[in-house]
């Protein structure tokens, strides 16, 4: 590859990246701009005299600590539940033989293709009939079964040599020991990456938690910020952006900490698939 093409490619990539990050730059910039600067100087994303007033305002007006706790509980429960159910299933589909295996695996794949929106009304009715509207369990339950998690882990488990697992069985290990002492630890990196991905995904959920959360007591961060933006904070752009930055911060930091493993696990799943 010659130097000219490399430079041309680099320039396009840098410009695209800059454009892609610009909205987030404005989001952060606006959260630090005073109202006078917001109206007087809308073009620049950078505040000349940064102020913390919007952050103080948001923390005073909204129970952000409670929303944060709800987001953590919701995302944590979805992640742990989904992974806990997916690991044994991925083991069964990758290293065990049983009747109906192909049919059941087809169901797993099928479940990934069903558009989420069609499940809303029936699931809403189910959650309502269990008296779980307005509760965290009502938010969590529909997300516990995930074809995607089973599929992705199976792709990783399959790459593990069967001979080692068979040797463990010969040595007297039970199937569950084989799974939890050998196969799962050997794929810990993939499991952790999937977990972080699921955590971020759940953290970012809006529609279902919004349908279920009938009172501010169970609002997650996304729901709380959305209700604020659609209501009393609708014209208060500084406050809206401060709340946005606070909501985004945990996922961006988490992503930057684990980005390498996360991106690799994810693309492996897609390419091997």
């Amino acid at each position: 590859m010659n130097a000219r093409t490399t430079w041309a490619a680099r320039v396009v990539l840098i410009m695209t990246t800059a454009l892609m990050l610009l909205p987030l730059l404005y989001q952060v910039g606006l959260s630090f701009k005073s109202p006078t600067e917001f109206f007087g100087n809308p073009l620049s994303p950078f505040p000349l005299q940064p102020t913390l007033e919007h952050y103080q305002g948001v923390l005073n007006r909204l129970p952000m600590g409670l929303y944060l706790l709800n987001s953590l509980l919701f995302s944590g429960a979805v992640t742990l539940g989904q992974i806990g159910l997916a690991i044994p299933a991925a083991y069964a589909f990758s290293h065990q033989r049983f009747v109906g295996q192909h049919l059941l695996f087809a169901l797993i794949v099928l479940s990934m293709m069903i558009p989420f929106v069609i499940t809303y009304i029936p699931n809403y009715l189910t959650i309502a009939s269990w008296n779980l509207l307005g509760t965290l369990p009502g938010m969590v339950l529909p997300f516990l079964g995930s074809g995607y998690s089973v599929f992705l882990l199976r792709q990783h488990f399959r790459a593990f040599p069967s001979s080692i697992l068979e040797a463990a069985v010969v040595d007297g290990a039970s199937p569950s020991q084989v799974l939890w002492r050998v196969l799962a630890p050997a794929n810990l990196a993939a499991i952790v990456s999937l977990g972080i991905y699921l955590f971020i995904q759940s953290w970012n959920q809006l529609i279902w938690p919004m349908l279920i959360a009938s009172s501010p007591k169970v609002y997650t961060l996304t729901v709380g910020v959305q209700r604020f933006a659609g209501g009393e904070g609708g014209n208060d752009w500084g406050a809206m952006m401060a709340a946005s930055v606070l909501t985004n911060l945990p996922t961006i930091v988490l992503f930057l900490l684990v980005r390498k493993g996360l991106l690799a696990t994810f693309t492996d799943g897609a390419v091997k698939g």
Binding site: T16, T17, M20, L21, P23, L24, Y26, Q27, L30, I200, W203, N204, Q205, L206, T222, V225, Q226, A229, M240, M241, S244, T247, N248, T251, I252, L254, F255, L256, R259, L263
Partner: peptide
């Protein structure tokens, strides 16, 4: 990494700006 950042934030929050 940088191009993936918009993908890890909440759609609703990213849309507000």
């Amino acid at each position: 990494t940088l191009l993936f950042i918009p993908a890890v934030i909440a759609v609703s929050i990213g849309t507000l700006i």
